[in-house]
Design a protein around this nucleic acid. Structure first.
Lengths: 344, 344
DNA sequence: CTGAAAGCGCTTACAG
DNA sequence: CTGAAAGCGCTTACAG
């Protein structure tokens, strides 16, 4: 391994001066700078990041902390991970993956090791012990998602208001007046405190009221199977429905095939629009699902940016709320003109 | 921050002795040990991993290197990432994510930083410059996947032989004799050198010959859309086919819906079995797809285990080849008894 | 603009 | 069984 001392010797300067040009932290005469850079190139010098970390008390490593047990992330954990890792690399940071329990004990241990400068928290719950831990230890952190108390907390999240607004507008503009929101099951333990479901439902109730349409919300577990089973219930309990907003794309696809089995056609009889969805999964529908595309890639990137700003001593900036964007495919269309008669 | 020196002072011993009990690296009298442990507990001491890394020349960090650009992993990157991270944590390691180009230059830079003890390489190509780089720099590494030259290389991979064998056996036992393998498109740039497709096809040709069934292989891009389009081609060019093995689950689902559109029923007219698939995606089919389930979680875990064995100076052990496991759902069934007549 | 030196918090021969 | 001390490869006041 080539060390800074080797470079200094080779260039006939002190190790301090090498450090100054490397970090651009003090003025160095052009001639000296050139000699040093030449030496570095010649020897193939790479600064040892561990030594730098110890001396500077900054590791330039950040952690992505996510719930260890809950492996059904909001669809696109891969998008978060990879876009966060790429943005971190851009900013000369490394990203470590920390699967941690929700109670915060593992996180406490990990933070105390001194490996990371800061933490990016995924899948934040409305009341989240991990946030308490990070605050208590004074660890810089940003969140993807939101707690209910946001006082002074850096975060990025989906803009559920705009997303829901745009989704309803799309269906309304097509002519739909009888919609149903198929939400997640809040009684599933892991979702009891799950912001996206709660926020979307709140937004939907408000927006539906504004549009003057009846507000119907049904809960459904997040799986194709549950969506399939939901079809019969929907037709039975809300027979005049012409459009469904589904908070989960698996549910949406299941519902579509369930409706097909029951002789209903999408979108001719019922339109389906998936919120918080991905085009990959949406493309599996027949017809392909119209979706509100989750901004997973943007959120991973923005989360890292906010965290790094914090680490650099800057203001993290205002919370970034990014809406899902409408991508119209074949599962949404104007409602049938005539009012469907009750089946004989 | 509580340092080792603080603990030593508090316990009335030298810092060396603290290190000995912490690492269990030299015998320490029970009394002294107890005093030290008490002091550590009392002060809430956590060893600084950065200082440890610098002094011991072992960071206990490993990197997961994966292709930066190719974001269509083999379905389950999340499974690899999370199971590898969990296993690493079990073994007291940290996992960093390194999105790197295929040409190995970025990897060279990163390795030279001295941050990691070893690298776990994902999505290995048959000829892989990254492998060349790691060998040249003497970096310990293990692969998920395989190069064509495996001389002395630690790796884990899917057992394509057994997977294909079991898949064919399932269909054959149901009574199928006319099968088609729908492989990936090897002319897509990123797949030109893609082991899973090549290995499966080779295995399939051999096994089909053993079973005495005609060997038909068609290529198809890995998307639902392409699968849908494949349906017509299949019926036109291979009209007597009773079962399809699809290497990609998106293709499989697309094919199923394409066949439906053309008036064919799965599995009544044609059975479909997806290789290298996940139950989540498979559940989106109607009927749900029978799959050979990819062992993503096992591979992530085994990859880390092999790498860490290497880092601990042990033999990495023999290559672990893990087959996909058959999960029978609704898309495979015995072929229709009568030979289907050509359409009028 | 440049250098000598202390220090980051550990590990690890070496000596006793 | 325990300790004094060198050293890991950098950064950073401090001095000139």
């Amino acid at each position: 391994m080539v060390t800074m001392q080797d470079v200094a010797d080779h260039a006939g300067v002190s190790i301090a001066t090498v450090s100054f040009v490397l970090n651009n932290t003090k003025p160095v005469s052009p001639a000296t700078r050139a000699r040093i850079q030449e030496a570095m190139a010649e020897l193939g010098f790479r600064r040892n990041v561990v030594a730098r970390a110890l001396a500077s008390r900054r590791t330039r490593i950040v952690a992505m902390a996510y719930p260890a047990l809950e492996h059904r992330f909001s669809g696109s954990a891969t998008e978060f991970f990879t876009s966060a890792a790429e943005k971190a690399a851009d900013l000369d940071y490394h990203l470590v993956l920390w699967p941690v329990g929700n109670d915060g004990t593992e996180l406490t241990e990990l933070v105390a090791q001194g490996l990371v400068d800061g933490v990016l928290l995924m899948e934040v719950q409305l009341e989240d012990p991990r946030v308490t831990v990070l605050r208590a230890t004074g660890t810089p952190f940003a969140m993807i998602g939101r707690t209910s108390d946001l006082e002074g907390l850096a975060h990025v999240d989906i803009d559920f208001e705009t997303t829901t607004q745009d989704a309803v507008a799309h269906l309304y503009d097509l002519g739909h007046r009888r919609m149903v929101l198929v939400s997640g099951s809040l009684d599933q333990k892991s979702f009891r405190d799950y912001g996206p479901y709660i926020r979307t439902e709140v937004a939907y109730r408000r927006i539906a009221a504004e549009y003057g349409i009846e507000t119907v919300v049904v809960e459904c577990p997040s799986s194709a199977q549950a969506g399939r089973e939901m079809a019969a219930k929907l037709l039975r309990e809300h027979p005049r429905t012409t459009a469904v907003l589904a908070l989960n794309e698996y549910t949406a696809l299941g519902l579509m095939s369930g409706l097909n089995r029951l002789g209903r056609s999408v979108p001719a009889d019922i339109s389906i629009l998936a919120l918080l969805a991905s085009p990959d999964v949406g493309s599996l529908g027949d017809p392909e699902l119209s979706i509100m595309r989750s901004p997973g890639i943007e959120l991973g990137r923005l989360g890292i940016e906010a965290l790094v700003r914090l680490l650099d001593g800057h203001d993290p900036g205002p919370p970034q709320l990014v809406p899902c964007r409408l991508e119209i495919q074949g599962s949404t269309a104007p409602p049938a003109k005539k009012i469907r008669k009750r089946r004989a």
